[in-house]
């Protein structure tokens, strides 16, 4: 009946919001309070002087931490752990980095184009020694475009659940089951937007191809780094990062 369907959707929404709150890594209020706490000129120079390998290793470490929170988010999402393990892994392998990029908009100050990194807000120039200017610019542009949508925490929660539970990912075993969960999350997202009079958001969401392109750009840059510094990846990068991207 429409009523019990409505109750089900409401339960799902509450579950997604709770899962997100418990795994969001940094509280929005804290990020907001610190948004003008930027690295000093000297600190930026110190980062820029770091060897490329060290800076890659640090960034891989921060990405891996963020991904661990995304895995916890997935595990708490109602229905996710009912999927077969192959499909859980397929969805996380394809979607974890995309969710990290979506979550990053909370830690981005669009007024001065800085992102929260290792304790303070950093501009794109801080990442110079990585040697991937284009990738960093694309990520900053993406964060800037998401910030323009003025996502609420509930919207980030539901949108990131939908980025993760995507029945179009290749190699799924039980696509229908993933599609069903995706369908329920999609309804929950739409109900939330209707209730908050934010339906206009749907037309402004980034197309899936944009997130996919950013993730491939990251993997391409990692391959280029690997050619330049063979061995470093295996010796010094977090195993989870290697498993997902190498």
């Amino acid at each position: 009946s429409p009523t019990s369907a409505g109750v089900e959707i409401e339960h799902l929404t509450q579950n997604v919001l709770k899962s997100y709150r418990e795994t969001c890594q940094l509280r929005a209020e804290d990020l907001q309070l610190r948004r003008w706490d930027t690295f000093s000129r000297e600190e930026v120079c110190a980062y820029q002087r770091k060897p490329m390998e060290e800076m890659w290793q640090r960034c891989a470490g921060r990405i891996t931490e963020a991904i661990q929170y995304v895995v916890e988010f997935a595990k708490r999402l109602r229905g996710f752990m009912d999927l077969c393990q192959n499909d859980q892994i397929v969805l996380l392998k394809a979607g974890a980095m995309e969710v990290v990029l979506v979550r990053m908009c909370r830690a981005f100050n669009a007024d001065n184009r800085t992102v929260f990194f290792e304790g303070k807000y950093a501009g794109a120039e801080l990442f110079r020694s990585l040697g991937c200017h284009e990738l960093i610019s694309s990520i900053f542009d993406f964060a800037q475009s998401l910030c323009a949508l003025h996502f609420s925490e509930s919207e980030v929660a539901l949108f990131s659940a939908l980025v993760l539970v995507n029945a179009n990912r290749p190699w799924l075993q039980d696509q229908a089951k993933v599609a069903r969960l995706q369908g329920h999350l999609d309804v929950a997202f739409r109900v939330l937007l209707r209730r908050t009079r934010r339906e206009g958001l749907l037309a402004r969401l980034p197309p899936p191809g944009r997130l996919r392109a950013l993730c491939s750009q990251h993997v391409e840059q990692l391959q280029a780094f690997r050619r330049l510094h063979p061995g470093v990846l295996h010796a010094a990068f977090p195993p989870l990062y290697r498993e997902l991207f190498a």
């Binding site: 661990q68 895995v71 916890e72 595990k75 708490r76 752990m81 393990q85 859980q88 892994i89 996380l92 392998k93 195993p239 989870l240 498993e243 997902l244």
Partner: peptide, 14 residues
């Protein structure tokens, strides 16, 4: 092949 993801998924919520 995805040893660590497997392990993370199998661990209880922590």
């Amino acid at each position: 092949k995805h040893r660590i993801l497997h392990k993370l998924l199998q661990n209880g919520n922590s």
